[in-house]
Nucleic acid binder design. Structure first.
Lengths: 203, 203
DNA sequence: GTCTATACTCTGATAGAC
DNA sequence: GTCTATCAGAGTATAGAC
């Protein structure tokens, strides 16, 4: 796409189709494990046509990452300083788990990127993401110091929410294989995590 | 290596050097992201020589995976039915976290594999691994029913240990970027996880 | 056991017709 | 905007000398 004009309807639609197909592929195989042929086939376009919409494979990948962060951090951003601390954190956990269930491909894309040292997302993580976490950690620390939740390391509390919720998307293959087909991972994870954080934070 | 003879000293050594170099590369870039050239360079061998020791890139990768599982599951296997339930689980968490710290490459290799749907490890996960988890879950359930730990879903308790400990290896790039250079992730994670599981399991 | 040279395939990207 | 044809480079693996 050589020009910077506003996108036509067909352009918007094709870009969306390409990104959706690419998300599927990149999440399943990582950046290097995906070929333009596969993305093109999944999107129902020819390879040169794909490259008419995005300059390169890299450009498709970074477009996906760019779209990801806002969605990914929204639940943490939503923590309300004026709300009830325990309820706020439980709501955060619930939203984050729901995000794993509704957007597992995004979760795996993100996991792939960080696992490989965040070569493309590094600056964003060290910048805006770290900034948001610092801000929210301060909020949580305040709640703990006021005795409204049990004392807890706020940074590692946030890490625990990421780890526990994203695990169900990122390690889905393992979770399902271990639990067997009779279990519904997310239906069980909800109550488990609710119990865990209630007991962790109870004053 | 065409023959099935016992390995000479030099063969044993070169196989080890190759596997060590390959672990580094595969953990960092995933199966598809690694070239034989990179592994050969890291191992200090020529590419054809590499292929003298392993039939293919695939063979190197699966050799690594084969070596992985015993190490990975040892702490869970160590759970002692005769021990104190809370102490046993806390010891498990401690060992698993220590494993993340001492073997982050193995953790990331495993994460990469499962993230991509466990194409090669699938049968092992659905078989021996699931069997071990079922066994240990029964043990933990017994402890809970006897009132020796608080009521908790044993499968998801085990998942939580995996998620919380492996997170520090798999998402190390993010953890370090968020905490900044002044923090020591593992030194902080130990007490945090200890507190978390004490509160979760206290009767 | 180890190397140089090379065969062959796949893949990202471009040219140019329509 | 989309396609066919194609190039250049990278990558796995093998042949064969030493």
């Amino acid at each position: 796409m050589p020009h910077d004009q506003p996108l036509s309807r067909i352009q918007t639609r094709n870009r969306r189709v390409i990104l959706d197909a690419a998300l599927e592929e990149f999440a399943a195989a990582g950046f290097a494990g995906v070929t333009l042929d596969r993305i093109a086939a999944a999107a129902g376009l020819s390879k040169p046509n794909l490259l008419y919409y995005f300059a390169s494979k890299e450009a498709i990948y970074t477009a996906l990452l760019d779209d990801l962060l806002d969605l990914w951090l929204a639940p943490l951003r939503d923590l309300d300083p004026a709300g009830d601390p325990q309820a706020e954190i439980l709501t955060y956990v619930r939203k984050k788990l729901a995000l794993s269930q509704s957007h597992p491909r995004e979760s795996r894309l993100f996991a792939n990127e960080v696992l490989q040292g965040a070569p493309r997302l590094g600056p964003v993580i060290a910048g805006p993401l770290a900034q948001l976490v610092a801000d929210r950690a301060a909020l949580i620390r305040g709640w703990a110091e006021a005795g409204r939740i049990a004392p807890v390391d706020p940074h590692h509390l946030i890490f625990s929410v990421w780890a526990l919720t994203q695990h169900y998307a990122d390690f889905e293959a393992q979770v399902r294989a271990v639990l067997g087909p009779a279990h519904d991972p997310y239906a069980e994870a909800g109550p488990f995590l609710e119990t865990l954080y209630r007991r962790l934070l109870a004053v």
